[in-house]
């Protein structure tokens, strides 16, 4: 079983790398330009082309890359001049922090919203929740981000502006995990924690709103399906308390599909959100990957792809484990 799992993961990774690599090589962008700029003389251009191995056949370039990756060498990112691993170690915690807070917000608010809506189907509360969810699903995040900044930061002053920290708090705590909320707690720097929290709350709330919209809609439809089942009617006929019917019986039975929804939402956020990162000057994985793609910086693209792939596979495995915990039949 374990061997099969490892094999599946390996094949998935290899396929992922292969597709990313070849797509990256056929886009009509010259990766040497990212390294030397437009104004470099022909001799420098040629030397860098050779250094990057671009004169070799594609299959050979791929083979060399895979060999290096197996040895733990992801190469150097052209765009930053730093090893890809160190870049990812820097940008991923920023994304992880934002995605986690956003998912928690989405989860805490989205699930009860969905349950409320289902329980009060076709009543005014249901309509309000449905409209809110629809709004969250259709409004551009870029616009919402700027409006949020304008109202909550510029006009009301209840949250901090773009960036992860105010400049006065730069380099106050040592980087341990890279997640400032965690590092500041580890260092006992509560003022830094407060500042980091005031910076993260708005982008996380906006991203969280989008997850919330999806989670609430899905929770509602899962719950509606359960509430129509005969065992619910039986429980009610038996005189069971309504809260017990809803939360223990119906809700208990939607946990498995709900975990999948939440896991996928979280995984999507962990890929990074380019637009949110741009508006909020958040140095995360999304803008790193996009910049790398546009510049055909393949080491960076492939490194980030492996990370994203690992996240997806990891979260899938995690949700499998959770299924077993919540559903006795899966044991």
């Amino acid at each position: 079983m374990a061997t099969r799992l490892v094999l599946t993961v390996l094949v998935t990774f290899l396929g992922l790398l292969l597709v990313t690599f070849f797509i990256g090589r056929v886009v009509p962008t010259d990766p040497v330009l990212a390294a030397v700029g437009d104004r470099a003389p022909a001799a420098v251009y040629e030397r860098v082309r050779m250094e990057l191995g671009l004169h070799l056949p594609l299959w050979q370039q791929f083979w060399i890359y895979v060999q290096k990756v197996v040895q733990g060498d992801f190469g150097t990112a052209v765009l930053t001049g730093k090893p890809v691993l160190s870049d990812i170690r820097r940008v991923f915690p920023a994304t992880l922090e934002l995605a986690t807070v956003a998912t928690l917000l989405g989860l805490i608010i989205g699930v009860p919203m969905g349950v409320f809506a289902a329980v009060h189907q076709n009543k005014w509360i249901d309509h309000v929740i449905r409209v809110l969810a629809l709004f969250g699903h259709s409004v551009p995040v870029f616009w919402l981000g700027l409006v949020g900044l304008l109202i909550l930061y510029a006009w009301l002053g209840v949250v901090a502006g773009p960036g992860r920290l105010d400049v006065g708090y730069f380099d106050v705590v040592d980087t341990v995990t890279g997640v400032i909320l965690v590092d500041s707690v580890l260092a006992g720097e509560w003022e830094v924690f407060g500042n980091a929290f005031s910076h993260i709350i708005l982008p996380a709330a906006i991203l969280g709103y989008f997850s919330l919209a999806y989670i609430a809609r899905m929770t509602r439809s899962f719950m509606l399906e359960q509430l129509r089942q005969e065992y619910i009617t039986t429980a009610r006929v038996k005189g069971m308390a309504e809260s017990r019917v809803i939360w223990r019986h119906a809700f208990g039975n939607i946990l498995v599909p709900l975990i999948t929804v939440i896991a996928l939402t979280y995984a999507n956020l962990l890929e990074g959100s380019v637009l949110t990162e741009t508006v909020f000057a958040w140095p995360g994985l999304g803008s790193y990957l996009t910049d790398a793609l546009l510049a055909a910086d393949m080491n960076a693209v492939l490194g980030a792809t492996i990370i994203v792939g690992t996240i997806f596979i990891g979260i899938n495995l995690l949700s499998d484990v959770l299924y077993r915990l919540v559903d006795p039949r899966a044991k």
Partner: peptide, 28 residues
């Protein structure tokens, strides 16, 4: 908590520090 930290969040730039916002993603 969000309201409580607004004092810390809205501190002006420190007196001995100049803060410049600039698109610096071209630096290699």
């Amino acid at each position: 908590s969000a309201l409580g930290i607004q004092g810390a969040a809205l501190a002006a730039t420190p007196k001995d520090t100049v803060v410049i916002a600039y698109a610096i993603d071209d630096i290699i």
